[in-house]
């Protein structure tokens, strides 16, 4: 958890907003630091987390998590974290073609297109338990990242449907949160990805967009982050507000500063 980012978003592990869909998006840079932020943030906030990790292995997330002060192994043992490791599951499905159902069983099918098993997995993982012996706060679904699903042959509409179902269940019914990362294809004209990104941008409550600098690589500024809130219109508050910060990723932290105000300049 990067405290500076929490401050910017006006949240802390003590006061978690509920029922929100957060879209993380990266253009020409790697936005995975945002995933690590939200993972450690919700674990620290005692939320029940279902993490659909499609890009990296468990040990990767665990080691980075330890740097940020959370242990995924312990969280998993306590039942706070349900971890779906995409890379491992893909291997199991591909090399052991038994017909037992699996959340990612679309990999087995020639014409992929159904994410219903994955939705059922999320549903099972986050379902509130009646006997609250370990009372976790609110359920959270975290996906890293949705673009991989497109690469694996799932259509953009199927992914949007999946998110829609999850929203209805997790955000609305159980008052939980969803955080999902999507790569912005930029100028490569990836139509499917654009459909997915536009569709999600339309319905998310908060959009964090990490961009590489237009002027190229810089040692002291790794990119800029635009934060866009989409709140219901209230007469007292301002309308949709958007803020842009520049950031520098450090070993265990990310520092944010106003545009052009990098400590290296001042």
């Amino acid at each position: 958890m990067f405290s500076e980012l929490s401050n910017l978003l006006n949240t802390s592990p003590d006061k978690v907003e509920q029922g929100k869909l957060t879209l993380l998006c990266d253009v020409k840079t790697d936005g995975s630091f945002l995933v690590h932020h939200f993972l450690s943030f919700y674990l620290k906030a005692h939320c029940k987390v279902c993490f659909v990790a499609l890009t990296q292995s468990f040990s990767h997330y665990n080691i980075v998590g330890q740097k940020l002060g959370v242990s995924l192994t312990i969280a998993r043992e306590r039942g706070q974290l349900v971890f779906l490791e995409g890379l491992k599951s893909a291997m199991d499905i591909f090399f052991r073609p038994q017909e037992e159902p699996h959340p990612l069983q679309f990999l087995r099918e020639a014409s992929a297109g159904n994410l219903q098993p994955l939705y059922e997995f999320v549903q099972d993982a986050l379902k509130p338990v009646a006997n609250g012996e370990a009372a976790w706060r609110c359920p959270v679904l975290l996906v890293d990242d949705l673009s991989v699903l497109l690469s694996l042959g799932v259509g953009a509409v199927a992914v949007l449907d999946f998110i829609h179902y999850c929203r209805a269940t997790v955000c609305w019914e159980w008052k939980g949160n969803i955080v999902a990362l999507v790569h912005d294809s930029g100028d490569t004209e990836d139509e499917e990805n654009d459909i997915l990104l536009n569709g999600l941008s339309h319905q998310s409550h908060l959009i964090l967009r990490a961009e590489g600098l237009a002027t190229g690589f810089c040692k002291d500024v790794h990119g800029q982050l635009s934060v866009l809130w989409r709140r219901p219109l209230q007469p007292t508050s301002q309308r949709d507000q958007s803020l842009t910060y520049q950031y520098k990723i450090q070993d265990k932290n990310v520092s944010f500063f106003a545009k052009g105000m990098s400590p290296a300049v001042l």
């Binding site: 893909a90 291997m91 042959g153």
Partner: peptide, 17 residues
């Protein structure tokens, strides 16, 4: 068109393990 990306994904899983 998803053949290549799927191959790379499963290969990545194999290599990581």
């Amino acid at each position: 068109s998803h053949s290549l990306t799927k191959f790379l994904y499963i290969l990545r899983g194999l290599l990581r393990a």
